[in-house]
Design a protein around this nucleic acid. Structure first.
Lengths: 231, 231
DNA sequence: AGCATAAATAATAA
DNA sequence: TTATTATTTATGCT
């Protein structure tokens, strides 16, 4: 599996998925990829026909199918993902974007969908659950939109905060502060926030992320110049 | 003091505090507990009226009154605590939660306040300091919020210690020690700290946190299988 | 379509 | 109990 060849390992390649006739039409781990692909495509169309977002589906699913599927309370957006996809261990061995990208490039959430790397096995596992849920949703829809709304979901639950966009001026000042002190005190942060007219919390998070970025930069630098001093 | 009776030593008991009419209304070590209790209650109300957190008060105090009160640089949250309370040697002989729990159960930080085990003596000692500080703060507040902010903020005072990041190797060794003994002696901790080249204090705190984590784990396990074996 | 990074969450040091 | 770091998630922009 550590082979350097990109086409011989168990990880999927574009070729396998799309145009390799030698591997029994994309059979991996005993899963019929073509079937999964078709299902995903159909599912998406059905979902969009109902005017639902992936998020809505994910939320509704975790409610309907029980928390066993939701895996964690991390983020509602991960719910669908945790159905469809193995989060970490499966970074390799995933159905690449080449699959989903072909689904419906023009439709609502192409970028989102494209990112949902899916392992054949988990796809297989979740398929019947999704099928069942979607059938029910469609039935509700036919019985009236009110009915569907009820089924979907009640609460919109917590929304993620809108990503704030710092002005270049603000960034300049933030960076200046950061260069002087990467760990401003609460007092300082309050002052900065007031001066820049941003939420204190937003400023706090900015510093967190900035420290993280710095750390990553350092780490990367170290990797590239191991022992020998190359500037 | 090694008596098995919990009511006859100099340590306080609930009875002494709340309902023992024989000891002159809660007189201990020459300290009028009732008075302390009243003061603490009033102090909290005054603090909340100014919209201040305990943390803010603690910070401001350590700045105003000097580091002599802060006792250690460990954690700024302990500043107030180190005023009010003796940290270690006074595990016995404290005003139990039964006192503070009665203060203001419904208010902002009941849980925290409830935990602040206080010795009568140190309470007596710190009382005038708190009284003076609070009077000043209130005066400032009357003179305008800006004024109070200035008073509170003053200097950032001592900063929280930077979170140390243990190396995997160090963690391995720490965990090995922990498995053998969850309560290493001071001597042992000093040795461990030297061996790993970390501050002794850092090692000490690691063991505290580790024990806490273990405790939580056990608690959680017990919740899920309450005595009776149900599979 | 992918990057940069803001936001959210989990783990754990103080 | 609080605060900071580690990690993950997702979104605004190009």
């Amino acid at each position: 599996s550590a082979s350097s060849s990109s086409s011989s390992s168990s990880a999927l390649s574009v070729g396998q998925l799309v145009s390799n006739p030698q591997t029994a039409a994309g059979e991996v781990d005993g899963v019929n990829l073509e079937e999964i692909r078709e299902f995903a495509k159909a599912f998406k169309i059905r979902r969009l026909s109902l005017g639902l977002t992936q998020t809505q589906v994910g939320q509704a699913l975790s409610a309907t199918e029980g928390p066993a599927y939701s895996q964690s309370a991390i983020c509602r957006h991960t719910i669908l993902r945790s159905h469809f996809f193995l989060p970490q261990e499966a970074q390799e061995n995933t159905i690449a974007s080449s699959l989903t990208a072909k689904l419906n490039p023009g439709l609502l959430y192409p970028a989102r969908f494209e990112k949902l790397d899916i392992t054949p096995k988990s796809a297989q596992k979740i398929k019947p659950v999704l099928e069942r849920w979607m059938a029910e949703a469609e039935a509700r829809h036919r019985a009236g939109m009110q009915n569907l709304t009820e089924f979907i979901g009640s609460e919109p639950s917590k929304k993620r905060k809108r990503r704030t966009s710092f002005t270049p001026q603000a960034l300049e000042i933030l960076n200046a502060h950061f260069e002087k002190n990467t760990h401003p005190s609460g007092q300082e942060m309050t002052e900065i926030a007031e001066k820049l007219n941003y939420d204190r919390e937003v400023v706090r998070v900015w510093f967190c992320n900035k420290r993280q970025a710095l750390k990553n930069t350092i780490k990367r630098l170290k990797q590239h110049e191991p022992a020998t001093a190359v500037p």
